[in-house]
Amino acid sequence: MASLHYKYAAMNSGKSTQLIQAHFNYRERGLSPYALTPRLDTRAGVGMIKARVGLQLEVDTFSRDCDLFMLVSDRLAQYKTDVLILDEAQFLIREQVYQLARVVDELDIPVMAYGLKTDFRGELFEGAYYLLCLADKQEELKTICWCGNKAHMNARLGADGTVLREGDQIEIGGNERYVALCRRHYMQGRVRG
Score class of each variant (00 low, 15 high):
113 A>H: 13
57 L>F: 04
127 G>Y: 10
110 P>W: 04
25 N>C: 08
34 Y>L: 01
165 R>D: 01
152 H>D: 15
65 D>L: 02
115 G>P: 07
68 L>V: 08
144 I>M: 13
163 V>Q: 05
157 L>Q: 12
183 R>V: 07
156 R>G: 12
32 S>R: 13
176 E>V: 03
47 G>D: 03
180 A>I: 09
87 D>F: 02
143 T>V: 08
43 R>M: 04
118 T>A: 13
191 V>G: 02
6 Y>E: 06
148 G>W: 11
38 P>V: 05
154 N>H: 05
131 L>A: 02
26 Y>C: 04
2 A>W: 02
86 L>T: 12
136 D>M: 06
77 A>H: 07
115 G>H: 08
13 S>Q: 01
92 L>E: 08
56 Q>H: 13
19 L>Q: 06
120 F>N: 07
33 P>E: 03
51 A>G: 09
178 Y>N: 05
162 T>W: 00
100 L>H: 08
64 R>H: 12
56 Q>A: 10
128 A>Q: 06
134 L>A: 14
182 C>I: 09
175 N>G: 13
30 G>C: 10
119 D>F: 07
130 Y>T: 09
16 S>L: 01
169 Q>H: 06
157 L>S: 07
62 F>C: 01
46 V>E: 15
62 F>V: 03
186 Y>I: 07
76 L>T: 12
87 D>I: 01
138 Q>M: 14
139 E>D: 09
52 R>V: 08
125 F>Q: 08
172 I>N: 06
31 L>G: 06
130 Y>C: 03
8 Y>D: 00
190 R>N: 14
75 R>T: 07
47 G>T: 02
97 V>D: 03
174 G>R: 03
60 D>Q: 13
173 G>M: 06
105 D>A: 10
14 G>V: 02
89 A>M: 11
88 E>A: 10
103 V>R: 11
131 L>W: 07
71 L>E: 05
167 G>M: 07
106 E>T: 02
132 L>Q: 14
83 V>K: 12
